[in-house]
Design a binder for these strands. Structure first.
Lengths: 143, 143
DNA sequence: CTAATGTCTCTAGCAACTATAGGTTCAAGG
DNA sequence: CCTTGAACCTATAGTTGCTAGAGACATTAG
């Protein structure tokens, strides 16, 4: 049985965050010690690790809640979980592409700075240019 | 001259968000019509598109403020500008590296999903399993 | 046994919006 | 010209996903 601090250290999640997850119902209420302290077992550990990894991948908590409910009922189809993962994957790829363009421009700026002023800075154009958008704006679902 | 609604539609930014950006000083105070309504020009449009794209890439508003200051003062001494550009460049590179790791993990998740039931779906296992982490947890800088 | 650390609850704050309320201005149709 | 409805104004409060603080109780190392 782990105290909340040990659990947090093991899963890489801060203690107040664990209590927050419990508060919003992502984690169930754990057993308590005689002195009212939370005590966790291996299944809590797995659940928390799942939440942490999903958060790292950019899943919103509501999507995680959905995934957890799917895994609580493993006889259902995993199509929904797969769709969420695919959506995240394409979002990640779009971000990488844009960041590479910005990286190039910042490299160019740093090189230019080495020899004078930053007149002719194109950072705004690189990120300001709508024409370089992977997809058009305005109709995208919010992240 | 564009009203705030037209500007927002053109840049893909909601109207209250534009007013919020003005409030926190990312956008200057625009001209007003005789009836006190905001009027924007092409340079406001570029600036707002820049902010939107940078936000999509996950830059915090304070980093965007710095990037904008680079283009706002193109004659600025290179010492200051260079420091800002270098800091942003390393932030961009860190973000790219992290996103690539996430891309790999999502690819693996999607590839392993058997499209059957969750019992055979690895999405949840992959996210729950600490052993498959690209890097150990706990010592990473927060996003 | 005592001192330090960990835990408890509760409240408040943060970033970056988003929504609502209650009023004003503008542009288009009758 | 006048009305009507959309778009605008200000100001405030709510959202998500935490994070930090205060003040009190529990546990553990020396």
């Amino acid at each position: 049985m782990l105290t909340i601090g040990k659990l947090g250290a093991a899963a890489g999640v801060k203690v107040p965050t664990i209590r927050y997850y419990e508060q919003i119902g992502l984690l169930g209420q754990p057993d308590r010690s005689s002195g009212n302290q939370r005590l966790y077992g291996a299944s809590d550990m797995n659940r928390l690790a799942f939440i942490r990894h999903a958060r790292e991948l950019g899943f919103p908590l509501e999507a995680i809640r959905e995934l957890l409910s799917l895994s609580d009922h493993p006889d259902q189809s995993c199509t929904a979980a797969d769709a969420i993962a695919r959506r995240q994957l394409s979002a990640v790829r779009a971000r990488i592409a844009r960041l590479r363009a910005l990286e190039d421009e910042l490299e160019r700026m740093v090189a230019q700075c080495a020899h004078g002023t930053i007149a002719g800075c194109r950072v705004i154009e690189v990120l300001g240019d709508h024409g370089q958008c992977a997809r058009p704006h305005g109709a995208e679902p919010a992240e």
